[in-house]
Measured scan of single mutants.
Amino acid sequence: MDSLVVLVLCLSCLLLLSLWRQSSGRGKLPPGPTPLPVIGNILQIGIKDISKSLTNLSKVYGPVFTLYFGLKPIVVLHGYEAVKEALIDLGEEFSGRGIFPLAERANRGFGIVFSNGKKWKEIRRFSLMTLRNFGMGKRSIEDRVQEEARCLVEELRKTKASPCDPTFILGCAPCNVICSIIFHKRFDYKDQQFLNLMEKLNENIKILSSPWIQICNNFSPIIDYFPGTHNKLLKNVAFMKSYILEKVKEHQESMDMNNPQDFIDCFLMKMEKEKHNQPSEFTIESLENTAVDLFGAGTETTSTTLRYALLLLLKHPEVTAKVQEEIERVIGRNRSPCMQDRSHMPYTDAVVHEVQRYIDLLPTSLPHAVTCDIKFRNYLIPKGTTILISLTSVLHDNKEFPNPEMFDPHHFLDEGGNFKKSKYFMPFSAGKRICVGEALAGMELFLFLTSILQNFNLKSLVDPKNLDTTPVVNGFASVPPFYQLCFIPV
């Protein structure tokens, strides 16, 4: 009986604490739906499609509103004006990374994606500088992407125009580009180590996009005490870190300090320079996690976009025909596509942009946080508050993009057929937390897609009208449904 009384008292205290925290903070924060004790607004949000729920709530509470995930307040920004004001106009104040408990377990605050403060700034600055020195957006990395595009075309030829699921092959190409940047090595598509790495990356994007992960991140005790797919994700990350550590040891034994070959060499050189400046942010643990982040951000996002792009091109054969006509006119058949071609191919450029806009790969991006107490639109948001960005509300804005739910390359073309930029184009987020590999991803999408369409016609196994382009999961990332196609050599 005594234990029951204690339990009831504990629960009562928890409920009172929950109510007090919510009521004391709500006077400062933007308005929002009334949260339930302990669980907050979790029942009012469709976990399978958070973005749709945010759109519905914005119609009631406006472009800036507050939700509670458990006891934790989260300020939501919906629509271009609110997102721009926060991420661009007040970029420094909104540059923090929001709480992501599962990532905390995986990387302990290291790396480039989930770190904060001085650690994040130094690692991000170093990573950007190193990638630029190796030619991100310049010639040397373009050579690597072109080489991988040629290998991709050869792998597709091996399908002999038979029906195939493109998931694996389209994942190999961007993964190999990242391998060449980090390890100075590309792998054969049949290499077992490479296959294991690909498998872990593919599993992780599916797990991260599941409703279960949303629950884990908002009720963090689940991570330590409950079984579930989150444990598989943590094991996959541990596998990748151990693999990278092996490569780091190989580099330490063979590195030429006067001739760095890749990202690992550059990081080890930085560690050597910083060894007298303790404590340094440049450690082996930081290198492991930064490399894992580059793999995660640079492989599955690009391969998922490529997979979605081919599905949309199957669905819209008239678009595919126009792209192939432009390829034939500008590039021809006797040389590989290059980035200089893009400025002469406005329709193809528009298609690449429209694919990214339409699929809305990361509907709410990753959570941000404010780095200080900030007054925002007459609300006071306390330091450390998590900020949720609705990228969907920007990419699918119906004023900027008429009929935003329709796939239409003319969203990025003017009346004369010239490519038209849009400030609403934010597939990689915006501001200080914009994806480090934005330029690389854009290069890969253009070169891989043009190389495929230069060499193959795409054949659907069903009537294009019957192809479903609805994402199968739409949590962290929008993942396309399973499909097969035939690559018919031109």
Rank of each mutant, 00 (worst) to 15 (best):
I434Y: 14
T159Q: 07
D188L: 03
C216R: 15
E438G: 15
R26E: 15
T470Y: 05
N403S: 09
R377Y: 05
D265Y: 03
S58Y: 13
G137W: 06
P163G: 03
M271T: 07
F219C: 09
V8D: 07
E199K: 09
L366V: 15
D89L: 11
N116C: 08
T301S: 05
P489D: 03
S390C: 11
L131D: 03
T386M: 08
P337C: 08
L14P: 15
N289H: 11
G171V: 04
G25S: 06
N56E: 10
L287W: 02
K48L: 07
L485E: 00
G171T: 09
K160H: 10
R335F: 04
P101D: 11
N116M: 05
L17S: 12
V462N: 07
L380G: 04
M339W: 08
P31T: 06
K121C: 07
L9G: 13
F219W: 11
Y483G: 01
Q252E: 11
P63K: 05
D293S: 05
P471G: 07
Q192M: 08
P409K: 01
C164K: 03
L19Q: 15
P489E: 04
R144M: 12
C435K: 00
I264C: 05
P402V: 13
T66P: 02
Y61S: 02
V479M: 14
S422R: 10
H78D: 06
K138R: 13
T299V: 09
C175M: 10
S254F: 09
L485W: 01
R125P: 06
F487Y: 01
K84A: 10
Q278G: 14
S162V: 11
S51A: 12
L287E: 00
F476A: 15
N204D: 02
S23C: 14
S286N: 15
I215S: 05
A477S: 10
V436A: 13
T302Q: 05
I207A: 07
Q261N: 10
N41V: 02
K206I: 04
E85L: 09
S140F: 12
L380I: 15
C372K: 15
E325I: 10
F65D: 00
S162F: 08
C175E: 01
Y308P: 00
E300D: 03
P63M: 05
P31V: 06
A238S: 13
L268R: 03
V370D: 01
P337G: 06
F69V: 15
L36I: 13
P33Y: 03
I222Y: 15
D373N: 08
P471V: 04
G296P: 00
S393D: 05
L77Y: 04
S429M: 08
A439Y: 12
S451Y: 11
G62E: 01
C486S: 14
N236I: 03
P279H: 15
A161M: 10
D165K: 00
M198V: 07
L461V: 15
G62P: 03
Q22V: 14
K158G: 08
N204T: 14
E328P: 02
I182M: 15
N259L: 07
F428I: 04
S140W: 14
F100V: 15
V38F: 14
T159F: 08
P409F: 01
P260M: 06
C338D: 09
Y308Q: 03
E246C: 06
F219M: 11
I389F: 15
K52L: 09
L9A: 12
G27M: 10
N258E: 13
S343H: 14
K119E: 15
P35C: 07
K190Q: 11
F168Q: 10
D224V: 06
F134Y: 12
F94E: 03
G40R: 02
R124E: 07
S162Y: 09
K459E: 10
N378F: 01
Q454P: 01
E93T: 08
S460P: 13
P346V: 06
L14D: 06
R186P: 01
N258C: 08
D143R: 12
I141S: 02
V8S: 13
L314M: 10
T301Y: 00
L268V: 05
E148D: 00
T371N: 13
F412Y: 05
S478G: 06
N202V: 01
V60I: 13
A297P: 03
R335W: 02
E85S: 08
D408S: 07
K119T: 11
V177Q: 00
N474Y: 07
R307K: 05
F226L: 15
E85I: 06
L361P: 02
H230C: 12
I223S: 14
N474Q: 14
Q324K: 14
R433M: 00
G117P: 09
N133Q: 12
T364F: 15
N398I: 09
Q340I: 10
F425A: 11
R21T: 13
